[in-house]
Amino acid sequence: MDLKRMGNQTVVFANPPVILSSYSVVGPKEGQGPLGKTFSKVWKDQLNGEKSWEFAESKMLREALEGAIAQVNVPSGHIDFMLAGDLLNQMISSNFAARQLALPFIGIYGACSTMALGMALGSMLIDGGFARYVLVGVSSHHDTAERQFRAPTEHGTQRAMSAQWTVTGAGSVLLGQTGVGPRITSATLGRVVDYAESNVNNMGSAMAPAVADTILNHLHDLHRHPADYDLIASGDLGAVGLALAGEVLKQSGRDMGTGFTDCGVMIFDANQDVHAGASGCGCSAVVFAGNIMQRIKAGELKRVLLVGSGALHSSTSALQGESIPGIGHAVVIEA
């Protein structure tokens, strides 16, 4: 059988799946940021009338998933699989959103890299002939993440200068076998890489080697150069991680040039007091579903490499002194 796999870690789709629609819902702080106008929907507050932040996050994910379905003429009964993930224990946001949507559901966890992972898996399902339509969505919420991973929100503490701000947002895409829209042409699934960073207030530094490893393998597997892409965007490395990944790639023989950026750097302004930038599943999801999709459709970007970045630790492993393993998953989107 003819394998669709290239090189070390990359899959190339014979019939590249189409991104039929995308939808993004964000919280108020994200709405006030520089990309505010590119999101489909901005909530007025962090709760949006729900009784807890966890309920609110699940609702936000549901709105994003339903929003993507509503934009195209695909009856929801025709959607073969829903892939979703989030950061909360046992992925409650996704599970409870899936309860309402009643679609065959695959919960996936790649920490903040989940959007790229879901797009890669969804494309594999479609190109493999197992599905015609796959719905992919992820969410994160600043306050649910704070209380699970860090301190209660009203605790009077100072955030480290390298700390990142978890995005309150949910993004989704509907992938189809045929149709009109940008296509996902290949994907490089990452290895878990751990360079012994154990500071939970410096996730960018923990994830940068993993992202660099995935980009290095991607370029090698497809015999490409950074200049072959109009945009290479990592998921949520933040300012510290982005600089580190660039430096690591440079020392490994790949100069990324000026087209290398990070969704976590794009989504907030310097004056929004987020320190090193944004993080969270929702970060790369809403930036891709909003800003990047618009720029692809407008013809500004022809070929984009989205590299989701994930920190695969838990609050338990951090307390027990383990370092933070990182992962990077890359998908190529072409107009």
Binding site: N8, L216, Q251, S252
Partner: peptide, 9 residues
């Protein structure tokens, strides 16, 4: 192809 791309840091 055989492995090789690994970051050299």
């Amino acid at each position: 192809s055989s492995r090789q791309p690994t970051i050299t840091v």
